[in-house]
């Protein structure tokens, strides 16, 4: 008697789970429809604005190449190697912080890291490297090694009331499980290309969002104290996740739920 009840219950639970996954994982046709939307990515307009902002504040691609001490031809490869250590800043920086420096050098007050203008300009700058493979070098120097190590640590650090870390959802154990219809992405998998497709247009927010800003959204929803943009830990996280996409082709802007 006891045993049969257990079996009945197990079957009931199993059928519930199966039903949930049948109904709530997206079909291939649906996924294809969302993929097609890339052809018309509203972020293209924002990237166009970013190009105008770079022109006005840094002297366009030529001004940026000069600031980075490379030729304009070498600019895409240079951009594809970010985040990287820069002697001028004495630290590892992402494109946004590098651009703050470039604005200063051109006599302009830098945009804040969280400003719409900075999102647009840094997204445009990353799009200059479209078609290039991500070429971050975490062994370039001890600063990069430290940033990577800090990022790796931060990724695994359990925090907040629920004791969650990035790993809770993005470890090999969790990857592929469904979180409200969405497969949890493997941040290093070729189909995710995480760092290569951020900045992206977030459809739920109707806004251009950078990788660091996305990390913040994740932290907020998982009830973790939000790490500031551009902080050592945040840049470390970007370095860590970027290393996972190393070699993948940059395609900016992405289009995400």
């Amino acid at each position: 008697m006891k045993k049969s009840i257990k079996i009945a219950l197990a079957l009931l639970l199993a059928s519930n789970v199966a039903m949930a996954s049948d109904q709530f994982s997206m079909s291939e046709a649906d996924k294809a429809m969302y993929a097609e939307m890339l052809e018309n990515n509203p972020a293209d307009i924002m990237i166009e604005s970013g190009s105008e902002l770079l022109e006005a504040n840094v002297g366009g691609n030529a001004g940026l190449a000069k600031f980075l001490k490379v030729s304009e031809d070498e600019l895409p490869k240079m951009i594809a190697s970010f985040p990287r250590y820069m002697e001028e800043f004495k630290m590892v920086v992402g494109l946004d912080q590098m651009l703050q420096g470039a604005m200063s050098a051109n006599g302009h007050k830098p945009f804040t890291l969280k400003s719409k203008e900075m999102f647009e300009m840094s997204s445009y700058v990353k799009s200059i490297a479209n078609g290039e493979p991500m070429s971050i070098d975490i062994h370039a120097n001890k600063h990069m090694e430290e940033a990577y190590a800090l990022g790796e640590k931060t990724f695994a650090q359990k925090r907040g009331g629920r004791g969650l870390s990035c790993m809770s959802c993005h470890s090999p154990d969790a990857i592929g499980m469904l979180l409200r219809t969405q497969g949890l992405p493997d941040l290093g998998a070729p189909e995710t290309k995480a760092a290569a497709t951020w900045p992206a247009y977030r459809m739920t927010k109707s806004a251009l969002t950078t990788l660091q800003k996305r990390f913040q959204g994740c932290m907020e929803n998982a009830l973790l104290a939000v790490i500031p943009l551009g902080s050592k830990e945040m840049v470390g996280l970007e370095v860590y996740v970027t290393e996972k996409s190393k070699g993948h082709t940059i395609a900016i802007p992405g289009l995400k739920r």
Partner: peptide, 16 residues
Amino acid sequence: LKAPEIAENGAVVPVT
């Protein structure tokens, strides 16, 4: 008429 059977968000639903 083409629309997703399951829309991943209600704010942006593609329709063809």
